[in-house]
Design a protein around this nucleic acid. Sequence first.
DNA 1: ATCCAGGAGGCCC
DNA 2: GGGCCTCATGGA
Length: 273
Amino acid sequence: MYQKELEDFSIEKIADSGQCFRIVPGDYGYVVVAFGKVLNVRHEGRLYSFSCDEEEFKAFWQKYFDLEKDYEKYRCLALPEDEYLAKAIHFGKGIRILRQDPWEVLISFIISQRKRVSAIRTSVERLAVNFGRSIDGKYYAFPTPEEMRLADIDLLKTCGLGYRIDFVRKAAESVADGRIDLKKMEKLKTPKLIEKLMELDGVGIKVSSCVALFGFHRLEVCPMDVWMNRVIHSEYGGHFPKAYLPYMGVIQQYMYDYARLNKIGVRGAFDHG
DNA sequence: ATCCAGGAGGCCC
DNA sequence: GGGCCTCATGGA
């Protein structure tokens, strides 16, 4: 076990931030499944306990949680007159942009279209249980491109993918056979990266943006979903301040989280503000 | 029960 | 380029 005081980190906020789907409450705090590893996380106040030793935490999880960055730097971009962002930042402090596996992010966000976060979580978990390698008998790694390519179709149909099932199968084939090389794509500049991802069937600008931000850590990318569209129109008159643009992805994560969990911009809902 | 979701593709103009 | 229409399923 490794313990550390973390002031700008909230496992609850991250788990429910809509960027990842395999951080869930367990019988002992939260369980994180990523890169074929399992980590138990719990905390009393700011004192966090992780189910790994210090070496593994510093070699792997610290980077995964993006703890090497100071998020105060991003929050300081908030303009003084921007009341919405001020509320969102206050509400969402502790959110990080995780450094996830691009492949898992790609499939997860292909599945995400027209689904709620909870439903995405269900589908992703079913994929892992049905096709992923067992990690410790209880948790399963996200399936590799090869495992997904070879997935039995009838079993795949039980994963709740709906009409997205062929998008997922084709993506698995493309990545498995190397037509889409996610490793090489790390070197692409962001516009090229987004364009290349959109060659995949079922990947449009929104999904591609999510993969760029959450899978390739391109912090300038701002995925525009139904919630962010509500925010930009109801709070910003159609465009965000220029000062935010270099880190719009991070800013976006605070805005999105606050909007979704407080139903900002939804007609008939109670507006916190 | 009815509504809607971290959208995209295929039309048509 | 934009404006509609449809897509399958689960969760609220």
